[in-house]
Amino acid sequence: MMRQDHLITATQLSRADIETVLDQAAEIAADPQAWAESHFGSVLALCFFEPSTRTKMSFDTAMKRLGGTTTDMGTVESSSVKKGESLADTVRVIEGYADAIVLRHPSEGSAQMASEFVDVPVINAGDGAGQHPSQTLLDLYTIRENAGLDDLSIGIMGDLKYGRTVHSLADALTNFDIRQHFISPESLRLPRNVRYDLHEAGAQVREHTELDGVLPELDVLYVTRIQRERFPDESEYRKIAGEYQIDADLLSEAKENLTVMHPLPRVDEIAPDVDKTTHAKYFEQAHNGLPVRMALLDSLLGGDDK
């Protein structure tokens, strides 16, 4: 069981918290049927103020696989939010229908605020450019399965400024003996508050503008998408984003057992020819979302230690 009532940021997770969830996720993955009735009657509210397919489906399926059900707020366009209702009011109403709330919202800090207005657990499924800690748990599960979680070099590449999966992952990795390399254009480097967290945690961190020099020493390469809207014009975007794309040819410079990850959806930052290599773990990573979110829900809903 985690000590917290909510999951808002990755900074709140200790190594023991993480290992407890990952260990349980591994048990669930080995025998999912054993958990099929464990939260019979529990209701999870899905509150997605931004479009999401896989995160929402993943939580929806996880709750149902634990024997519970879900209730979906629907899209913002179809809800009372469009009439100007505050988030604080929305979650106070939804609290009455559900045993836990999964929230995705475009404002940074929205999940923290929501958690202050309700008594049921709130899971932050993405708050603007802030955090996405449940993604981090499945990322860590994938890293542990493929490379272990200590004495590693991890490269995190792409949009590090606005990438909430990156912020949560970087914070959580400070719990382990891991060298973190951040690879991005200057304009998309890690924000100050995340660099502050890493510094406070005494993490081993290096920042790079090119993948070339650091690729041979990496055990894991975590690629994220650089979005068009971060740049003033199309040609600037194409020029810069093109420097942070990988293909099978480039990976010939990498360690043989390099694990390549991506939170998905990808566009062209990982060429399709990488999919056939032994490096590609991003679909496995996405599939890990199910047992990890089942373990997380069980922990927040007060599961008995099986």
């Binding site: 940021t9 100007g84 505050s86 988030l87 604080a88 919202h105 404002s107 940074e108 800090g109 929205s110 923290q112 605020m113 202050e116 708050d127 603007g128 802030g130 508050n193 995340v194 502050y196």
Partner: peptide
């Protein structure tokens, strides 16, 4: 930051080494 939205919440900052840090968005 959510504290700049139309929400019934007061701002909150924690004191850090050489400044202050928003308790909501960091």
């Amino acid at each position: 930051c959510i504290t700049n939205g139309n929400e019934p919440v007061e701002t909150s900052f924690s004191i850090v080494a050489d400044g202050v840090r928003c308790s909501y968005c960091g």
